[in-house]
Simulated scan of single mutants.
Amino acid sequence: MAAPSHDLIADAPVAIHHRPAHAPATPAAPTLLPGLALSAALAACAFGLRLVPGLGLFSPMILAIVAGMALHNVIGTPARAKPGVAFSMSRVLRLAIILLGLQLTAAQIVEVGARGLVVIALSLTGTFLFTVWMGRLLGVDRKLAELIAAGTSICGASAVIATNTVTRAHDEDVAYAVACVTVFGSIAMFIYPLLPALLHLDAHAFGLWSGASIHEIAQVVAAAFQQGQQAGEFGTIAKLARVMLLAPVVLTLGLLATRRARHGGETRSNAQPPLPWFVFGFIALVGLNSVISIPAEMKTVIVTATTFLLSMALAAMGLETDFAKLKAKGLRPLALGLLAFLFIAGFSLALVKLTT
């Protein structure tokens, strides 16, 4: 058969693409604005809710994911908001984690001291490994167990959503893990201040124990400062040093996910887990914050903006979370969260006693 004429091929597009002037324009690509606006509105609502008596104990991130879940399950997430919601869960989240680096300096980490860093590192590592192992024994999905492990051992909701950039669990898993670290971190926030005298902990030891084992930064601050300024300041610094370990943990999990994919342990759609490049941005900003002095007013703005962006990401996560799917996961992950909390509290306390 003769090859088709080049003239025919050249003429074809003219006939196909020619349309009358009155024909409707091609629909524009979905805009990110509605979803970004909705996520931002929920984050702003979360900040406002903290002014309500009793709710100030919770971070805006926690309130944001609760607000997102409530909206999604009562009214539903508008279809046109989906692209912006997905953008908030990915790009906005990564930017917020990078900005977290401006809340840490090398000097703060040094201030914790060698013994303090050993306590923090061993507590984190031991808790993470224990939680993943116990999750396997309880029959909890590996990805959900990793999220609970990260949230308990590192820094609560921030660690959960950062870890999920490489774990890539379902949104319901993220919501469940955030719920676990919120519940048990809040319990620790109320119980810890009752224990220093009983456990014979001075201000330094209590601050280290709080910073090494309580889940969220806000919860550490609330608990540690109840034992005085020295305990509060040292607890906060110890917690920030613990946050620094988020970078190596996420990088390690990313490498492990890639290794599993190469050995056929993941489905084809998950065959190339992303390398968390944003973690290097986090480390770079820690370095920058260590060599230049950021004015206190600007630092306050940066901290607020970072918390707002993290709240946007969690609000978006809530907008993708189904209560029915959450309920279907049962109580085993909650039991895992409880065991992880008890482990990090007991293990870190034993290390503090041994080293102080």
Rank of each mutant, 00 (worst) to 15 (best):
L57R: 14
V279S: 10
A261V: 04
T163C: 13
F323Q: 00
L275Y: 15
A261H: 06
A157F: 01
I292T: 14
G235F: 03
V301H: 14
M312D: 04
L194E: 13
M89V: 00
S5K: 07
F282D: 11
L246H: 07
L253W: 09
R332L: 11
A284R: 01
P196V: 08
R168W: 07
A296D: 14
A296W: 01
M69I: 13
D7V: 13
L342A: 14
G54F: 05
V303I: 11
V291Y: 10
R262H: 11
L245Q: 03
V110T: 10
A313D: 03
G287P: 06
G101V: 02
L57Q: 13
I214S: 09
V110N: 04
A96I: 08
F58P: 02
R115I: 00
V66R: 01
L198Q: 12
F343I: 05
L342Y: 09
A224T: 04
A159L: 06
G228D: 06
H6M: 10
L38R: 07
H18I: 00
H6C: 00
L256F: 10
L93R: 13
F87W: 13
L147H: 04
F184W: 13
N289E: 06
R94I: 01
L55C: 08
L194I: 12
I217R: 01
L240R: 07
E216R: 06
L93T: 06
A44S: 14
L199Q: 02
A231F: 09
T356Y: 11
A328I: 01
M312Y: 05
G151E: 09
M244A: 15
S5Y: 04
I65E: 03
M89I: 00
L38K: 08
I187E: 08
A10P: 00
R19A: 12
E320A: 14
T163W: 03
H17S: 02
T356F: 12
A222M: 10
W209R: 06
T267K: 11
H72F: 08
